[in-house]
């Protein structure tokens, strides 16, 4: 929890890189007057508006919803709009900002997320409904909803993806963000193709590539648990046929009311 009580000047050290001018990234310091409740994103706005218009970063919602402001803050991937400046400056009065690691830098803190989105689309993150769609609604039990582990609250910021050391070495790997989405679809009783999804993730670049380093959990600004999701997918991938049969049976009753306990 932040304790906003001091107004002071802090140093914001930003990794700069302009591919038209620079051969490699370098750090540049800016002095910012810290005000009450100021976030890292506010500090960046302050710098861009009053000191150096060339500082480049992504942002949109400013409320931790769009996921575009994810960056490396003091060596940790998180959202700039959600992080109070006072929590990061410490006794050195300094915060270091950089782009998300393991992704090509376009400029300053803007990275090329092509591989991120390619891997995301690879797992078909949309729901594949059964042929027999109920007239009114699908009925899911509380347990079934809970089993999704809040996976639907992922905002696709890329913090987990670019903190994953496997991704750092191998861009073929699906990545924790996409696997979390795949988990969500596989566990969703309305989804028609969990078997096919599990088969797709069963290869050398799928669920087994994860080394259980837990960096994704540490990085997720929404407190989600992609590692747990990957572990579950691994287990299900090994008993895919049985899982498919159970799903088929469940789908026959998806339109029926859930019996009260």
């Amino acid at each position: 929890m932040s304790n906003d009580n001091t107004q002071r000047t802090v140093t914001v050290s930003i990794q700069r890189f302009d591919p038209d001018v620079d051969k490699k990234p370098h750090m540049q310091d800016y002095q910012v007057e810290m005000t009450k409740g100021m976030t890292i994103l506010d500090a960046l706005h302050e710098i861009k508006t009053h000191q150096d218009g060339s500082v480049t970063y992504r942002r949109s919602c400013r409320h931790g919803i769009c996921g575009s402001c994810a960056m490396l803050i003091n060596g940790r991937n998180t959202l700039a709009c959600k992080t109070p400046l006072i929590d990061e400056v410490g006794h050195k009065n300094r915060v270091t900002l950089g782009p998300l690691p393991y992704l090509p830098i376009i400029k300053d803190m803007v990275v090329d997320r092509t591989t991120f989105w390619e891997q995301y689309l690879r797992v078909k993150p949309w729901l594949i409904p059964p042929d027999d769609i109920p007239e009114k609604e699908f009925r899911m039990s509380k347990e079934e909803v809970n089993a999704l582990h809040d996976a639907e609250s992922c905002i696709m910021c890329g913090a987990c993806y670019s903190s994953c050391t496997v991704i750092g070495l191998n861009k073929h790997y699906v990545g924790p963000h996409a696997l979390l989405k795949a988990f969500m679809r596989v566990m969703d009783p309305r989804d028609e193709a969990p078997g096919q999804r599990l088969a797709d993730l069963d290869g050398a670049d799928g669920v087994y590539r994860c080394h259980t380093v837990f960096n994704c959990i540490d990085a997720c600004p929404k407190g989600l648990n992609p590692t747990q999701a990957i572990e579950t997918l691994r287990k299900l991938a090994q008993k895919r046929k049985k899982f498919e049969t159970t799903r088929r049976k469940r789908q026959q009753h998806l339109h029926e009311p859930i019996p009260a306990k």
């Binding site: 070495l169 191998n170 861009k171 073929h172 050398a204 590539r209 080394h211």
Partner: peptide
């Protein structure tokens, strides 16, 4: 070894 991008292609 196959964690590394280049080696992955020769798995």
């Amino acid at each position: 070894i196959t964690d590394v991008d280049r080696a992955f292609d020769y798995r």
